[in-house]
Simulated assay, not measured.
Amino acid sequence: MRTSTIGDVTILLPDLDPADLDPTTDLNDDLSEALVEDASWRGAVFDEVRVRSSRIVGTDLSESTWEAGTLFGCEIVRTDFSGASLSGMTLERCAVTGSRFTGTRLTDFRLKDVLFEECRFDYAAFTRVAAAGAVGFVDCILTDATWSSCRLPKVVLRSCRLDRLEVESCQLLGADLRGNSLHDLKTTLGNLRGLTLSDDQLADLTRLTVEELGLTIREQ
C-alpha cells in the first residue's frame, strides 16, 4: 500500500506491479489483477462491472456508458473518458493520472481515497458526486465544468485551473482550495462555507462577495 499526502489529507493508493497482472482486452466481465493496455471501447456500454486491483493504460473509453459498478485499488493512466456517462459508480483507493474527462457526466458517483493527477475535466458535469473519504485533484483542468448538489468534504485541490467552474448547491465543508486561482469561479458564497484558503486568495473571495451582494464600491 502506498499513500500520498496533500495538505492535511492522506490518500490511500494502490501499489500495483504490472508483472503480477494478467493482460486482457475484455472489460465486459469482472476483472481482478488485470492489465488493460491500448484497448478501444469507444461507445461501449458497461453494466455493474467490477474491476479490482487492475491497471488500465492508454485506453479509449470515450462516449461509453457505465451503470453502477466498482473500481477498487486500480491505476488508470492516460485513458480517455471524454463524453462518457458514468452513473451510480464507486471509485475507491484509485490513482487516475493523465486521463481525459472532457464533457464527461458523473452522476450519483462515490469517491473514497482517490487521487486525480494531471487530468482534464473541462466541461464535465458532476451531479450528486459524494466523497466518503480523502479525494485529491492535483494539476487538473476543471475549466467550464459544473459541480451540482455534490458533497465533497475535505477534498483537496492543488494547482488546478478552475476558470468558470460553476458550483451550485454543494457542501464543501473542510475542502482545501489553497494554491488555485478563484478569480473566475462561478458560485455563491454559501457553497464556500468552511473552505480552507490562503491569504493570496482573499482578493478573489472579496470580488465574489461584492458581486453576490451587488455592492457599489466608490472612492471616498
Rank of each mutant, 00 (worst) to 15 (best):
residue 177 L to S: 01
residue 146 T to K: 03
residue 180 N to W: 05
residue 181 S to E: 15
residue 172 L to N: 04
residue 140 C to F: 11
residue 182 L to D: 13
residue 159 S to H: 15
residue 159 S to R: 12
residue 132 A to C: 05
residue 172 L to I: 03
residue 131 A to R: 00
residue 155 V to T: 11
residue 147 W to H: 08
residue 153 P to Q: 05
residue 175 A to T: 04
residue 132 A to W: 11
residue 163 D to R: 00
residue 152 L to C: 01
residue 159 S to D: 15
residue 182 L to Y: 06
residue 151 R to Q: 08
residue 143 T to H: 07
residue 156 V to I: 09
residue 164 R to H: 12
residue 137 F to S: 05
residue 137 F to T: 08
residue 169 S to E: 14
residue 148 S to M: 03
residue 142 L to Q: 05
residue 178 R to C: 14
residue 158 R to L: 07
residue 163 D to S: 05
residue 181 S to A: 06
residue 154 K to A: 02
residue 180 N to F: 08
residue 146 T to F: 02
residue 174 G to V: 06
residue 146 T to W: 02
residue 181 S to Y: 10
residue 182 L to N: 09
residue 180 N to A: 02
residue 135 V to K: 00
residue 174 G to F: 07
residue 171 Q to S: 12
residue 167 V to M: 07
residue 159 S to Y: 12
residue 157 L to Y: 08
residue 155 V to W: 02
residue 162 L to A: 02
residue 156 V to G: 11
residue 131 A to C: 08
residue 138 V to L: 09
residue 153 P to K: 00
residue 165 L to Y: 08
residue 156 V to A: 06
residue 161 R to W: 12
residue 137 F to A: 00
residue 131 A to P: 15
residue 136 G to H: 06
residue 141 I to F: 03
residue 155 V to Y: 03
residue 166 E to D: 11
residue 145 A to M: 10
residue 133 G to W: 09
residue 142 L to H: 06
residue 142 L to N: 06
residue 139 D to Y: 07
residue 170 C to A: 01
residue 136 G to N: 11
residue 170 C to Q: 02
residue 179 G to H: 13
residue 140 C to S: 11
residue 166 E to C: 07
residue 157 L to Q: 07
residue 161 R to E: 15
residue 153 P to S: 03
residue 182 L to V: 09
residue 148 S to I: 04
residue 178 R to W: 13
residue 146 T to E: 15
